[in-house]
């Protein structure tokens, strides 16, 4: 009986970790949609690129003799966040602003094109094979029944949760308490009016892209080092699932993205653990359909006036 409990706890741990990744990446999708009504299909690639940046920075630091896991991860995150924010800023100018206001399909194709470009850019630069890194933070707690089932909680998982929660709190504070954050919210509610208040909405939009990218970068570095293996295509599946999570939680709503991400991660872990890994995706997408049937705007979503 106790074994069942520990197994459940273990799957919960797995779910939270996966959910953290989905939540962080989902934030990017939801913020961009909230402000300009567009799905940024190139967003998953930000996760992939920051994983690579993380690997490269950590490898470089290790060569310089740094071996504290704390410093390595912090260093990787600072560089990844900086670079991906710049990237997020510029991708908006290059791929999306020129086609803003035109047919939505054009923006969609532009985004998908950007995604393919990035995957192959990294592939050509780095090779399409998996790159691996030895675990940085080892060890963890085990508890449970040594004769039956033992749940393991690795330290790295805890690191991921703590940093994810910190990032989400930071973002929430930014959005609710700071001037820029309020401007972001105003833009997502009424872009035209915000312009009429004298605020440069183009800058706010670019800032939104940058913030979304930074969140994905946190996920990319953390989970890249956690799983230890990356290739140019990891962003694709994760991006797709994170997008699903954003819709599940209510696209356009930041708390929705966080909630949707966690829910999806836990649902997947539970399904893979108790049913079979094969049904994981069936359950995830089935959940999405169910929620949308009864709450078409997602769990925390609100009915929106059509954005122009």
């Amino acid at each position: 009986m106790a074994d069942q409990f520990y197994l459940f706890i273990q799957q919960l741990f797995n779910g939270f970790t996966l959910g953290s990744a989905y939540a962080l990446i989902a934030i990017g999708y939801t913020m961009v949609y909230g402000i300009i009504g567009m799905i940024n299909f190139a967003h998953g690639e930000v996760y992939m690129i920051s994983s690579y940046i993380g690997f490269i920075v950590i490898a470089a630091l290790m060569m310089m003799g740094v071996d504290s896991a704390f410093l390595l991860i912090t260093g990787a995150m600072i560089v990844a966040i900086t670079l991906t924010s710049v990237y997020g800023f510029s991708i908006e100018r290059v791929a999306y602003r020129p086609v803003r206001g035109q047919n939505r399909l054009i923006a969609l194709i532009s985004a998908i094109g950007m995604s393919i470009f990035l995957q192959n850019y990294v592939r050509v630069g780095q090779s399409s094979r998996d790159i691996a890194m030895p675990p940085l933070v080892e060890g963890g707690w085990t508890f449970g029944n040594p004769d039956g089932f033992e749940a393991t909680l690795t330290y790295m998982r805890v690191v991921i949760w703590v940093i994810t929660i910190a990032a989400m709190i930071a973002l929430t504070l930014f959005v609710t308490r700071t001037k820029m954050g309020r401007a972001c919210r105003a833009c997502s509610e009424d872009l035209g009016m915000t312009n009429l208040l004298g605020i440069n909405t183009n800058f706010i939009i670019a800032l939104t892209f940058a913030i979304g990218a930074a969140m994905a970068a946190v996920a990319g570095v953390l989970l890249g080092t956690f799983y230890g293996v990356i290739n140019p295509y990891v962003g694709f599946i994760l991006g797709l699932k994170a997008f699903t999570a954003a819709v599940l939680g209510g696209i356009g709503s930041i708390p929705g993205a966080m909630l949707g991400g966690m829910l999806l991660g836990i649902a997947e872990a539970m399904t893979a653990g108790y049913l079979s890994a094969e049904y994981k995706d069936v359950v995830s997408f089935g959940l999405l359909i169910l929620v949308l049937l009864f709450r078409p705007y997602g769990i925390l979503g609100k009915p929106e006036v059509e954005k122009v």
Binding site: L7, A272, S276
Partner: peptide
């Protein structure tokens, strides 16, 4: 006797099952 999907990042539920 189970299948996984290639390309996924997270196999921890499978691992937990192996242990269970």
């Amino acid at each position: 006797y189970e299948a996984i999907t290639a390309g996924e990042a997270d196999y921890s539920p499978l691992i937990a099952k192996l242990k269970a």
